[in-house]
Design a protein around this nucleic acid. Structure first.
Lengths: 246, 246
DNA sequence: GCCCAGATGTAACAGAATGTAAAAATGACT
DNA sequence: AGTCATTTTTACATTCTGTTACATCTGGGC
């Protein structure tokens, strides 16, 4: 098992020189072995030959379609794939994950975030490797959140009600719900929730969290004067009170 | 189950001497058993050997990356993890939670807040332990408090009367009732009750506890001149006198 | 038993926190 | 620029909480 950054080979596929250089230097500073290219030609062969562990793939490459590239890569290789998508391409990143990418970041992104996601993915890859004897296509399945008959698909941001009705949640509402469900029974402060939603701090008089909570409660059919799922901790924050896993 | 602070072992991992000393003395004053270290070397072994229950981990340690440490710890131990992050590390604290930390505080932090979060986490850990045999995730059993035909759902803060009427308790009243029910037959001082409700001390002339008691008694149908459930210990505090488990 | 000081019960108030509809702002796309 | 979806702010209604004020009770001293 590869344990040190220097053992790990990362390939950056990105046509914009500025972005590419930034990424290269950032990952080199983190101690990884880094290669770069501005096109996706013969990507499969290059990955095999150079023993690449992880590909950072810009989805909007000139020429070949990034999604096609993803699918082809996944079909013949267990390499880690992180997509780099533009802000608007929601469809792309959703489809991208279905086609086999392992994670994605959205431009403009914080290099630090990308690094953390890369580390995270590499860890998942190698711990899965040791855990199931090298089975490369280990479960990359989308783990749905579920609670009290509801289901939440993290890739499509889709919420399914107990009676089967489906609805796509906006980004903010989704992240908020995800964060709450991830910490059942725990009071989360507005500051923490702001962190989870927008990487931003909470300032007094900021009511955006409350508004989002209200919208979520309505969509969950949770009467605010007698909520069953999202409880208010007066003066502290909010708490998820549903049973997860049901 | 560990019930007193002295049974609980907390390890503080922090390289800055001043911060570390502050934390150590603060948690020692709170009655916990405290160890300290300025690095994350062999953290897993130390935690096993010393039976550490809770780790306060500074994420920006020199040398080893705090996130990696978190992940490694979580991979092999059910120890409680609270991250201490710096103001700027938004990504880190978010990802930290994804990697398995239980909570975090942001520098500069109020020691009192950290203590509150630690208490909370410890309570969650040990109540989960007794509720479903150490399985920290998944469906937490709905262990209701029950007494004299009443039921109190700790997750939803909901009180059900003997005739089936349901009512949601405000935060303060709920915590007060919960504390009383958890110590039947025991006189609890106003100071103890204040501590349980708001992590705050009681000052003479503070009548808030009495008011809350009054509101609770009314909701429980407990005649104050002849209370059956919440008795007044004149000059001392209050005592819960109901039969639990009925 | 009677009186009194201190302690408790509680209604009412004020301040703060929360719920929420609707307006305004944002940002991506056409 | 115009449209659309989403987010944020604003404004006001509602709910929660602690304080105050005063009524009532307790226990001790006589």
């Amino acid at each position: 098992m590869k344990t040190t950054p220097a053992d790990i080979h990362i390939l950056i596929v990105e046509d914009d020189l500025a972005s590419r250089s930034l990424l290269v230097s950032y990952f080199e500073n983190a101690g990884y072995r880094v290669s770069e290219t501005d096109n996706a030609d013969h990507l499969g062969e290059r990955i095999d030959q150079d023993a690449v562990d992880l590909v950072l793939l810009d989805i909007s490459l000139p020429g070949k379609d990034g999604l096609t590239v993803t699918r082809e890569l996944r079909a013949k290789s267990a390499v880690g794939i992180i997509l780099v998508t533009s802000k608007g391409d929601e469809i792309d990143r959703i489809v991208g994950l279905e086609l086999g990418a392992d994670d994605y970041v959205t431009k403009p992104f914080n290099p630090r975030e990308l690094l953390v996601r890369a580390k995270n993915l590499l860890w998942r890859m190698f711990s899965a490797e040791t855990a199931n004897g090298g089975n490369s296509h280990g479960s990359r399945s989308a783990t749905c959140y579920s609670f009290e008959g509801w289901q939440l698909d993290p890739h499509k941001r889709q919420l399914t009600s107990p009676d089967g009705h489906q609805e796509r949640l906006p980004e903010g509402e989704f992240k908020l719900l995800q964060t709450l469900v991830n910490h059942p029974g725990q009071v989360l402060s507005r500051d923490q929730l702001m962190d989870a939603i927008h990487d931003r701090e909470w300032t007094p008089n900021d009511r955006s969290v409350d508004v989002l909570i209200g919208r979520l409660r309505r969509k969950l059919g949770d009467n605010p004067s007698n909520p069953q799922l999202i409880l208010t901790a007066h003066g502290a924050g909010y708490m998820f009170a549903g049973n997860t896993g049901t």
